[in-house]
Design a protein around this nucleic acid. Sequence first.
DNA 1: AACTTAAGGCAACAGCCAGTTGCGGGCTAG
DNA 2: CTAGCCCGCAACTGGCTGTTGCCTTAAGTT
Lengths: 201, 201
Amino acid sequence: MTTSTTSSTRRTRDVRTRGRAADVVERILQATAEQLSEVGFAALRVDDIAARSGVNKTTIYRRWPTRASLVDAAIRRSKPPAGVARGSTLKEEALAIARDWLAFHESPMGRGIVRVIQTEVGHPELEPIVRELRADGRRGRIAMVQRAIDRGELPPDTDAALIADMIFSPLTTRLVFNVERVDEQMIARTVDIVVAGLKAV
Amino acid sequence: MTTSTTSSTRRTRDVRTRGRAADVVERILQATAEQLSEVGFAALRVDDIAARSGVNKTTIYRRWPTRASLVDAAIRRSKPPAGVARGSTLKEEALAIARDWLAFHESPMGRGIVRVIQTEVGHPELEPIVRELRADGRRGRIAMVQRAIDRGELPPDTDAALIADMIFSPLTTRLVFNVERVDEQMIARTVDIVVAGLKAV
DNA sequence: AACTTAAGGCAACAGCCAGTTGCGGGCTAG
DNA sequence: CTAGCCCGCAACTGGCTGTTGCCTTAAGTT
């Protein structure tokens, strides 16, 4: 969506978006993502981002008035995979989504976003983006389950939200809290159990 | 010999643990828990705790050298329910644990702890207590699944950790991220699906 | 009751970091 | 080649953590 910049009260507002300016923005957001993935939001220092990107702190503040808005911008620059699944069975679709997430989690921005999702409370300024990230992911996963229901793969009275959570929250919990390793096989087993269970109950 | 007390940096430390001292400690930890549940760790200010407990900031720092150690102490004062389950079936045990958690989550300390569990990254000083909280909970839940396996309620080759996560991570995710309401019925359905699925697969 | 001394109150301070300001100079666009 | 946008620089405000020295209060002892 080209120019985002939620706050309009800046100065004369980003007329030059090419050349040096574009390069500076790029470097700042990249450095933000990297720092975010390495130290998280709480310990994120603007001076460090300035140093890392080779840009003056003032320049950063001129474009993004607060630390939170900077992080917001950096995240929106490369949001996680939309969770648009493809496949002919629930299992295939779930695996595809999980694969996307695992791959995304390898990138600096991926790790950074995971840390942000984990943050929030006590940082109300960050809440909008966090809420959006969570909602996006959940929406896609619930839609996935709904397709399986429509397809007749799952009983018609299935609680799509619950099933979506049952399939993915073990994954996200392990990813976010960094406990035990996560792989495709784990997802596959999870899906198998849930699907079999739904048919049996 | 015996009591060394090299009276180095700090003073001679907590000899009087009754009377006024005990009252002060009590008030500080209580205020910490309350503030924690209201604003979370990131926004927790020592001055506020001092004001709320009617104690001078210096007094707080004399007992707990950092904000994190204070929070650590407040949490240890009333940790979450141990997850010691009781019941004759997996479902009964799971429901008992879930009930304890939901009840605990109503108290100031309960909410405070949930916020802390959610925090961590970027606050390395807080990591020990967070790790401990998570480990405690998980250990209890895995043991619960293991009992069900031993009892023959679940197949012997069941992955206890995975099943524990499948049953409880939808609950904790919803509790921590505050999305959708959580009730016993939800847990019951989750357990039913997982158990049925394990038998069928 | 008198005394000893641990523990709390007070106030000023150092250090870190977010966010601000005024000015000056280089780079881009036209 | 000129106008003015954009960035660099440096100094500053203000909030919060954690510290220090000194004084006051009260707990426990005789």
